[in-house]
Amino acid sequence: MNQQSITKPYEKAVVEVKNLSVFFNQNEAVKKVNLSIPINKVTAIIGPSGCGKSTLLRSINRMHDFEPIARLEGNIFLEGEDILLKSVDAVSLRRKIGMVFQKPNPFPKTIYENILWGPKINGFKINEDELVEQSLRQAAIWDEVKGRLFDSAISLSGGQQQRLCIARTIAMKPKVILMDEPCSALDPRSTGRIEDLILELKNEYTIVIVTHNMQQAARISDYTAFFYDGELIEYGNTSKIFTTPVLKQTEDYISGRFG
């Protein structure tokens, strides 16, 4: 890896990935990646399909625990604590690191219950109505659903469902929100709304977003990491990556010459 191509952000890092490799059986999907994710910023991870973006993202909240064939090497530090240690309870960890998935996946319950299920089951002491309103407002969906909080979440449109999923994640007050191509199943209008929302949210949360869409990365992120074939190729200020990338490979990808 070219040292020059990785500029460390000046801000304080919340998550620090050190020498992380992820194997599926013998296949190395993420190769010795080092990445530090700054607090209260949006970090975008871009790269062609199958380059290990999502795999990296899912390592951060230990979603790979459910796949017996996955094996992780290296460390990921959350505020200085290695979260890949066996002794770290993945369940408690995920309360601090929320995740929004590719396809909206609301629970088949009411909108109200969707927000409250996580905090309730984790025994948080909360004012229910207040938390629901606050989370929905933060996710910029309150005005659309305030009249029908007790309707099934399934009845919402795709874009609304995704914002509900974001609201559900916010309700847990996580430190970091991981987003795995959150707009890939949505139309451009809904995508625009979610992008605005992400820009709002970064005042309070640290966001890591995997995206296919380079314009999206350019629009919303502060830092961009470019992955190729499991390796982190270049990482730095978004404006720098998109205007004056250090490496030819990055430039080729960004200008659409491959991938």
């Binding site: 979603m63 408690s92 089951i121």
Partner: peptide, 27 residues
């Protein structure tokens, strides 16, 4: 029961049993 539903629950930091009793069985 779709896998995405389980993932959504796990991402909120619930245990396997909480996910089973709260989401999987009702669905």
């Amino acid at each position: 029961v779709p896998r995405t539903l389980r993932e959504a629950a796990f991402a909120l930091g619930v245990t396997r049993w909480q996910c089973t009793i709260g989401q999987v069985i009702p669905t």
